[in-house]
Amino acid sequence: MNLELTQQIRDQARGLLKSGTVKGVIGYERASDGLTARPFFAYELTGTDQLIFDETCSHNLVKYLLDKKGEKMAVVVKPCDSLAINLLLNEEQIKREMVFIIGVSCTGVVETAWNQKSQTLQARCQTCRLPKPVVYDFLAEQEPIRRLEGELYPDILEMEAKPIASRREFWHEQFGRCIRCYACRQICPGCYCPECFAEQLSPLWVGIRIALGENELWQTNRTLHLAGRCTGCNECERACPMDIPLSLLNRKLEKEMEELFSFRAGLTSEEQPPFATFRKEEKLGFEE
């Protein structure tokens, strides 16, 4: 456990609850394995002693704000998670005044599973470009840390280099395994439609067969709905019980968005997403 950060978070949470600024604080506590972390909602002062922060705090707690729209909540966010706050603000799913953001200047999270904790930083942390959250009300700080330089999308480039047939084969193999539990959707802070297209009957976009064709429809549409919106927390991939490398899809689009529009989702809450706007610099195909 990172004592320095944990203490700052606990103090902050205590202050917020004591003053009645927030109804609850969404943070992390120790999981039932005694080793990793899990989300935790502190509503009472006593609960704040359970709050922790360390390198196993992978969850993007911003998702939970969608369940707590009517109440002012505090939420602990890592720099990467904070992008999702801007996304939800931009899409008017949350109100800024209803959230108190306890930012954490994180040093990266490691690969974990229940009762397992590796020493390896998660891949996304190795090329993380955010030293601190893009939006916060309080920042739990620690010594600034090294950020590894390097190619942001080595795996995507590798995938792009493959012929289309072998890419198709790769994804058929992956999607073939999908059991359509929709955990990837449920954990995603960008997925909040009251009725997901995948569950609509009229028209029926995706059939209920848990089989390659339908799975592929689900996965590709999910990815497209996140184009320019995915903030890269990679919770979907972490949750997937069938180990489908979803980040390869999400980050491919992230890369395209960067290259085409110099846009990264969540950096601000103001900017119009590229798909909702049209700029003159974009190719018109005819005289302006």
Binding site: F40, I179, C181, A183, A239, P241
Partner: peptide, 16 residues
């Protein structure tokens, strides 16, 4: 209700 705070209703539990 408190337990459900954390739950994502991801359904993984049921599928496994």
């Amino acid at each position: 209700e408190r337990l459900a705070d954390r739950c994502l209703h991801c359904s993984i539990c049921a599928y496994v």
